[in-house]
């Protein structure tokens, strides 16, 4: 076998590939949320990482204060964070309509500092463990590797949510409105569609996606206030690689980058932290608009 030739045990190779796939699933869900928000608001949501972290903390809070477990949190945490997103959009981002888009980036950067700084102060920078649900504990031996159920679930759930988002955008009426709003908001407004409301909902939905990823991540990485702060930079690189033009593009790029990162961990561990940035540099040289992007 190829793996034996390279002197890498298949257990290690497939184990890292699975880990990569999981990271890739997070990249996909997060970059998808960024793309949805970017489509209607034309801003890059720098607080995406902080809101992802809030999703994980909401999961903790739900079990601690209300005794609501993982499955409830999977629905409630994105709703809670999505509601917060709607407040942020209405209260703050709404005021930046018509201003240079860079200010949106700066505003959400400031928000990320506030949210993360507050949580570091309250909970410290160390992680808080969260147990995976009992139904998904254990795993199955596939012969060439051990597959923990929870990890399989994370990949499955992410892909399902991404595909559902794609269906929502491509096959429903509200999706058609959202795409029209991305294309030409003024004309859409002239047709009698409430574009400001649509924009608010798009931000809420994008943010809820981030929180969903946060809930999925809670049992894997320990819940900690800075869990989203470095992740968001990698997700930015993924967005540059894929281009924000297409939903399928975001999903494919996210998963692929996770796998590449996993493979790098096996063959050249020192480079695993930088490989995605390297891919970004190469893509920028060969295809500046991004793999799925249309214009620079």
């Amino acid at each position: 076998m190829l793996t034996d030739l390279l002197g890498i045990p298949p257990q290690v190779l497939f184990g890292q590939l699975l880990l990569g796939l999981i990271n890739g699933a997070f990249y996909a869900v997060l970059s998808l949320g960024l793309a949805v928000i970017f489509g209607l608001l034309n801003i890059v949501n720098f607080s995406h990482g902080a809101l992802y972290m809030l999703g994980a903390f909401a999961t903790l809070a739900l079990v601690q204060f209300f005794g609501i477990g993982y499955w409830g949190a999977l629905v409630l945490a994105p709703l809670m964070v999505g509601a917060l997103g709607i407040v942020i959009e209405r209260l703050l981002l709404r005021r930046l309509v018509g201003v240079d888009h860079l200010y949106g980036l700066l505003l959400t950067f400031g928000l990320a500092l506030v949210i993360e700084g507050t949580f570091v102060k309250l909970f410290g920078a160390s992680g808080i463990p969260y147990a995976a649900p009992a139904a998904l504990s254990g795993g199955v031996n596939l012969g060439f590797m051990f597959l923990p159920w929870y990890r399989a679930w994370v990949v499955l759930a992410s892909v399902v949510v991404c595909l559902a988002t794609w269906l929502l955008f491509e096959r429903t009426k509200i999706g058609a409105y959202l795409r029209a709003g991305t294309e030409n908001p003024k004309l859409l407004q002239a047709f009698g569609v409430n574009v400001p409301m649509l924009t608010t909902l798009a931000y809420g939905y994008g943010v809820a996606l981030a929180a969903f990823a946060g809930v999925l991540a809670a049992p894997i990485t320990q819940v900690n206030p800075l869990m989203g702060s470095n992740l968001i930079i990698v997700v930015f690189a993924v967005v540059v690689i894929g281009g924000m033009g297409s939903i399928i593009g975001a999903i494919v790029t996210g998963l692929a980058m996770g796998m590449i990162e996993g493979l790098t961990k096996v063959f050249w561990p020192e480079a695993s932290a930088t490989v995605i940035f390297l891919v970004m540099a190469i893509v920028l040289i060969l295809r500046p608009a991004g793999l799925f992007g249309k214009t620079a």
Partner: peptide
């Protein structure tokens, strides 16, 4: 690398490259 793209992409590229430099 960064001047190949505009606006917010420019910001994201410089951030990502600086993060690479950090590592």
């Amino acid at each position: 690398l960064a001047i190949r793209r505009h606006g917010i992409y420019f910001a994201m590229i410089t951030l990502a490259m600086a993060q690479m430099a950090y590592f």
